[in-house]
C-alpha cells in the first residue's frame, strides 16, 4: 500500500514538475530563437512574468460570446493538465497507467481543441472563424498521422499503455536495438505531428502579428487577462508533454528502468532535462531556419508524415 502511495506521490510530482516547468521550456525556446536571429531576446523567465501579469489583469469578453467562450480556457487547462498525469516523464512509467493510455491523452487534447475551436467561433469575428477553419483542416489531418505513429510505436514496443511502451523503449535501448527502422519512420512522423500540434513553424507562426495568417492565435484573439494566461499555460504544457513524449519514446537513453536508487533516479532526471532542452533547441532552430509554409501545402507535409509512419508499419510487418 505504501509503495502504491509512493508511486502516486512520484506521479503527481512528475505532473506538477511538467506543468510548472512548461513555461520555462517556452522561454528557453524563445531565447534560442532570438539568439539564432542575432537578437538578445527576453529572459527565459519571461513566460512566467507574462502569466503572472495576465493573471492580475482585467478581462474583456465579447458581448456576442456565450458561456462556451468563458468555459473554454478552464476546459483547456484541465484537459491538458490531466493529460500530463498519464505521461511518463523522468521515470519510465506513470502510476496512472491503468486509468488511461496514450489514446486518452489524445482524447484530452482533442477535448481542449474542441473547446478552443468553438471559442474561436463564439466571438462572431471573422478572425476566430479563420483560425477555427484552419485548425479544422490541420487537426483532421494530424489525427491519422498521429494515430499511425502510435500504431507503429505500439506494434514495436507493445500496446498503447504509455508506461509499458516507454519502459519497453528504455529496455530496448539498453539491449542496444534502438535503431528499429519502423521506429525511425515513426520518429519522422511524430516530429511533424509535434510541430503541428504545438502550432510551430511551418504550420503556424507563434510570433506573428498578422491576423490573416494566424491559426492558433486567431482563435484566441479575443482572450485577455486570466483566460489568456490559462490558454498560454495550457499551450506550453501541451508542448512540454509532446517534447517529453518524443524524448521518452524515441531517445530513451539514460532513463532509469525503476526507482531503485537515488543515483539512477538523478541520472534519469538529469538526462531527461538535457534531452528535452536539446530537442526544444532543435525545434527553435528549425523554426528560425524555415519559413511558414503555404496553408494548402501543409496537407502535403501531413500526408508525408502519414506515409512515413505507414512505411514504418510496413517495415514492421515485412
Amino acid at each position: 500500500m505504501s509503495e502504491t502511495l509512493t508511486l502516486v506521490a512520484i506521479g503527481i510530482f512528475q505532473t506538477i514538475a511538467i506543468i510548472a516547468f512548461a513555461p520555462l521550456l517556452m522561454g528557453i525556446m524563445r531565447k534560442v530563437k532570438a539568439r539564432t536571429q542575432k537578437r538578445l531576446g527576453a529572459s527565459v523567465l519571461q513566460p512566467y512574468y507574462d502569466l503572472l501579469k495576465l493573471l492580475k489583469k482585467d478581462e474583456v469578453v465579447s458581448d456576442q460570446s456565450s458561456w462556451i467562450f468563458r468555459a473554454a480556457p478552464w476546459v483547456m487547462l484541465v484537459a491538458t493538465a490531466t493529460a500530463a498525469l498519464f505521461v511518463p516523464i523522468f521515470l519510465p512509467f506513470s502510476p496512472f497507467g491503468t486509468a488511461g493510455d496514450i489514446l486518452v491523452m489524445l482524447g484530452l487534447f482533442g477535448l481542449a481543441r474542441f473547446f478552443i475551436m468553438l471559442a474561436g467561433l463564439d466571438v462572431a469575428s471573422a478572425f476566430g472563424g479563420l483560425g477555427t477553419s484552419r485548425e479544422m483542416m490541420i487537426s483532421a489531418l494530424v489525427e491519422p498521422a498521429l494515430f499511425l505513429t502510435i500504431f507503429v510505436v505500439s506494434l514495436t514496443l507493445g500496446g498503447t499503455n504509455l508506461s509499458s511502451i516507454v519502459a519497453a523503449s528504455a529496455g530496448q535501448f539498453v539491449s542496444g536495438v534502438l535503431i528499429v527502422p519502423s521506429m525511425l519512420f515513426a520518429l519522422i512522423a511524430f516530429f511533424v505531428v509535434m510541430l503541428a500540434e504545438s502550432g510551430r513553424i511551418p504550420f503556424d507562426n507563434p510570433a506573428t502579428h498578422l491576423e490573416l495568417t494566424m491559426v492558433h492565435e486567431a482563435m484566441v484573439l479575443e482572450y485577455s487577462g486570466k483566460s489568456l494566461a490559462m490558454i498560454q499555460w495550457s499551450q506550453s504544457i501541451k508542448q512540454a508533454i509532446l517534447l517529453a513524449l518524443f524524448v521518452n519514446l524515441f531517445i530513451p537513453a539514460g532513463m532509469a528502468s525503476s526507482i531503485v536508487g537515488i543515483d539512477t533516479a538523478a541520472t534519469s532526471v538529469v538526462s531527461f532535462i538535457a534531452k528535452v532542452l536539446l530537442l526544444s533547441m532543435l525545434v527553435a532552430f528549425i523554426e528560425t531556419r524555415t519559413a511558414k509554409w503555404r496553408l494548402f501545402r501543409l496537407p502535403d507535409l501531413l500526408a508525408m508524415a502519414i506515409a512515413s509512419s505507414m512505411i514504418g508499419v510496413l517495415f514492421f510487418y515485412l
Binding site: Q37, R39, N205, T213, T288, A291, K292
Partner: peptide, 9 residues
C-alpha cells in the same frame, strides 16, 4: 511575412 525571421533579422 513569410515567417522566415532569420532572413529578416
Amino acid at each position: 511575412d513569410v515567417g522566415f525571421s532569420y532572413g529578416s533579422a
